[in-house]
Design a binder for these strands. Structure first.
Ligand SMILES: [Mn+2]
Ligand SMILES: [Mn+2]
Ligand SMILES: [Zn+2]
Ligand SMILES: [Zn+2]
Lengths: 139, 139
DNA sequence: ATTAAGAATGCAACTTTGTTGCAAAAGTAT
DNA sequence: ATACTTTTGCAACAAAGTTGCATTCTTAAT
């Protein structure tokens, strides 16, 4: 244990650097999805803003994190499950929930996105579902 | 006709101004959802950037337009159906589609978002579904 | 039609967010 | 230990979004 972050990096064929380990740690510690801003607040004193941008980008491409769409211009990120890391492509078909009270966005890992039928001629590649409301901590 | 935009404004108890009419016209003419940027391109020479921000904000609040979440930090906007304007609150439970080829985002007005069961303790207020893929024009 | 009150707009100044090129530093493989 | 490659930090910049305030435009009442 304690080297979980390092393992993720190695499994993704990424070199192990201090900033990557730290940012992974932040995700592993978090119980909700994080915006760039959140991460910056937690470690901008240690690492450059640009590094955070680039690290998130890298993590996305490697299937370490996935992003969650939003209507507030604050894309949030959360750790993927192992399947994304091992297969190398994203496989996150769970619903996301944004609480209007506490503002937290979480992955509902057990709630699968229900199938939907598109009109003729449309091909589906990815699908995203975000629900707003009140979370169980705030109710 | 030709005063459709004006009607919308009056029905929403908004004063009728040149910029609001113009921005509504842009939406009425568009066959896809528009980002702030798209609107700016079409009329920044006539109206100030700030006015566009404020107008979109106002339209959102009045239920004239709704926004579509995204993972690219470019929230897009589309006209609501009449129900939103008359009831004053949003009622847009259709699926949105983003084409990876042409980049256009459209409302699939006939495709309803399928129901989903949340875990105990969560209360749903709004729901958003965005599908990515290839649209019928690009296939 | 005038006018007075309120609302919307434009402008300027500013903050925040995101991007790019390049030199220095750190990581990896031999 | 060394050479090679990747990552980082910095600086400079560009784009996006916000705020306060003076001016202009709308609306509704006279
Ligand atoms: Mn998730
Ligand atoms: Mn729509
Ligand atoms: Zn909550
Ligand atoms: Zn298309």
């Amino acid at each position: 244990m304690k080297k979980q972050g390092e393992d993720i990096l190695k499994n993704s064929a990424l070199s192990v650097t201090a900033s990557r380990k730290r940012i992974l740690e932040i995700f592993l510690d978090a119980d909700n999805a994080l915006a760039h801003q959140d991460i910056e607040t937690k470690c901008a004193d240690q690492y450059d803003r640009v590094t955070i941008y680039r690290t998130l980008q890298t993590f996305l491409e490697k299937g370490i994190i996935h992003n969650i769409p939003s209507t507030d211009n604050m894309v949030r990120y959360a750790l993927c499950n192992d399947a994304c890391i091992t297969t190398g492509h994203h496989n996150d078909n769970h619903v996301h929930f944004r609480c209007d009270a506490c503002g937290k966005t979480v992955c509902l890992d057990d709630v699968n996105i229900p199938p939907v039928n598109l009109p003729k001629g449309y091909t589906m590649k990815e699908i995203n579902m975000v629900v707003n409301g009140i979370c169980k901590s705030c109710k």
